[in-house]
């Protein structure tokens, strides 16, 4: 059991309606594909991700991930039971844990049993994202790019059935963006993913399809 279940993507069918934020978005993502959500600020891109992650319950709508209902009018699966990975522009590494312990944090969900196995899998992942030599560093001792690489390893190691990326490159120094983008393109292959971005280059490099959310009407 390695916890890397590349190719284990599941199709997503979702509709999110939050009238007070002027959000009304419907889209589907084919199994193992990446859907980019683009649109102006305030159009509700991040609201859609919050609903899929389990942080915000939309007034109406539904999300079906493979054969599981994440939410609809009767159902609401809490975030921790969704098996949905969420990566933001802030890596949000746990500052008191080493890179290795950060990646190992989500391995219990991926079914990796035993401390030694978890350590080995975490180290494998750190190597895969190019920071294998930093396993014992804490986030305070890493650059922004190294921290985001570690966060990518952490979220994918936990074996999510759906990956949500909210502007994952926008806080990084310009010179590391192409490398991390390339890494994401590599590790996301075969994973069902929803990517929120402002950057055309991200859409081109990472997405199989794109949905543009229009700006909300001025009254919203």
């Amino acid at each position: 059991m390695t916890g890397w279940r590349a190719g284990a993507g599941t199709a997503l069918d979702c509709s999110v309606v939050v009238p007070e934020r002027g959000v009304d978005v419907t889209f589907t993502v084919d199994e193992g594909q990446t859907m980019a959500l683009t649109g102006p600020n305030g159009s509700g891109k991040s609201t859609v991700l919050s609903a899929l992650a389990g942080w915000l319950r939309p007034e109406t709508g539904h999300a079906q991930l493979g054969d599981r209902t994440l939410f609809d009018e009767h159902t609401w699966i809490p975030a921790r039971r969704r098996n949905v990975g969420y990566l933001t522009q802030d890596p949000l590494l746990f500052p008191h844990l080493t890179a290795e312990a950060n990646v190992a944090f989500g391995l219990a969900r991926a079914g990796v049993v035993g401390r030694r196995n978890r350590r080995d899998v975490a180290r494998d992942w750190l190597g895969r994202v190019g920071v294998g030599q930093l396993a014992s560093r804490r986030p305070g001792e890493m650059s922004g790019g190294q921290a985001q690489r570690t966060a990518i390893a952490r979220v994918l190691a936990s074996g999510p059935e759906l990956v949500l990326l909210d502007e994952p490159l926008s806080a990084l120094d310009a010179q590391v963006v192409p490398q991390i983008r390339e890494l994401l393109a590599e590790v996301l292959t075969g994973r069902t993913t929803v990517l929120v971005t402002h950057h055309e280059a991200d859409v081109v490099a990472l997405a199989d399809a794109a949905t543009t959310i229009p700006a909300p009407p001025p009254s919203a």
Binding site: A53, P78, R80, V84, Y86, D90, F105, G106, R109, V155
Partner: peptide, 14 residues
């Protein structure tokens, strides 16, 4: 609460 949300979304119990 961003770190706590991250932990929960990684499957940790409350």
């Amino acid at each position: 609460e961003a770190h706590e949300r991250t932990a929960l979304s990684l499957g940790a119990s409350p």
